[in-house]
């Protein structure tokens, strides 16, 4: 089983240690990981801004880079959902794209469903109160957990994984899956609302006594981390792979 590691462009530039944690986490499962260097960006920022036409070259580049892997794994629900949901307009039932679309996974989803949760063991204690921020694209598009709006049985792949970590305590938020207000260029175009939403999300975590806020999308966490640092809020953000890989806060 050959796995291609897809690292979102901004994480490569800004969060190399989280990328490293992702790499090591997958390695620790005795998986064969490759990191193809020709990758750049999935094109989501442009597409969400109404410029999906500019994304075609990137989409073709992406498919060419990753088409030969059995699985493509990325530490971002939102970038994975971009490839899965919005690339089809560039490919006319193309066999390579269809393969990429079917084999791309967000890392938690991959660990939970492909490596299988029952085969996973995490030994490093994480004695903290943790709030899970369900980033929308992973949550409602990839269905990493059951959305609160739906009347179907509840499950959460992120919480199932975290619950395997010794001594961790998951807190209950007032709003299980409210958006944090990042939204790509929304964070700048609608700055006032974006920050208001971020502050409310952080407050919900602090009110719920969380010491750490975690999630599967660094973009949302980057936005809230920016507010937390500016406002000196008593909470810290960590990407879920850091917790799973045994990184200390």
């Amino acid at each position: 089983m050959k796995i291609g590691l897809f690292i979102p462009c901004f994480m490569n530039e800004l969060y190399p240690n989280i990328c490293k944690a992702t790499y090591n986490l997958l390695k620790s499962q005795n998986l064969q990981i490759e990191y193809p260097l020709s990758q750049t960006c999935c094109g989501q920022p442009m597409a969400n801004s109404g410029c999906s036409k500019d994304v075609k070259t990137l989409a073709i580049n992406f498919v060419n880079t990753f088409k030969d892997y059995d699985y493509i794994v990325a530490p971002s629900g939102s970038c994975v959902s971009m490839v899965k949901e919005h690339y089809s307009e560039f490919f006319d039932n193309d066999k390579d794209f269809n393969k990429v679309k079917a084999s791309i996974y967000e890392v938690c989803e991959f660990l939970h469903d492909i490596v299988k949760i029952e085969n996973l063991n995490f030994n490093i204690s994480f004695p903290y109160k943790v709030g899970v921020h369900n980033s929308c694209h992973g949550h409602r598009v990839l269905k990493l957990a059951t959305a609160s709006e739906l009347n179907i049985p509840y499950d959460s792949k992120l919480k199932n994984l975290l619950n395997k970590i010794p001594d961790i305590e998951l807190v209950t938020l007032k709003r299980e899956d409210e958006c944090c207000g990042f939204g790509g260029t929304f964070s700048v175009q609608e700055e006032a609302i974006s920050v208001a939403m971020g502050k409310d999300r952080i407050k919900d975590h602090i009110d719920s006594k969380a010491e750490i806020m975690t999630g599967a999308d660094m973009s949302c966490l980057m936005h809230m981390d920016g507010i937390i640092n500016r406002d000196k809020n008593p909470i810290k953000v960590m990407h879920i792979v850091e917790i799973l890989a045994g990184v200390k806060p």
Partner: peptide, 27 residues
Amino acid sequence: NIWGKQRDLPKMPEKSFKEMFKDGELD
């Protein structure tokens, strides 16, 4: 810098992940 009106920018790391990978710093 509209982002920075009410939010701090993330701290710039010394190296990108790609550079760490090329420099063999992952394992």
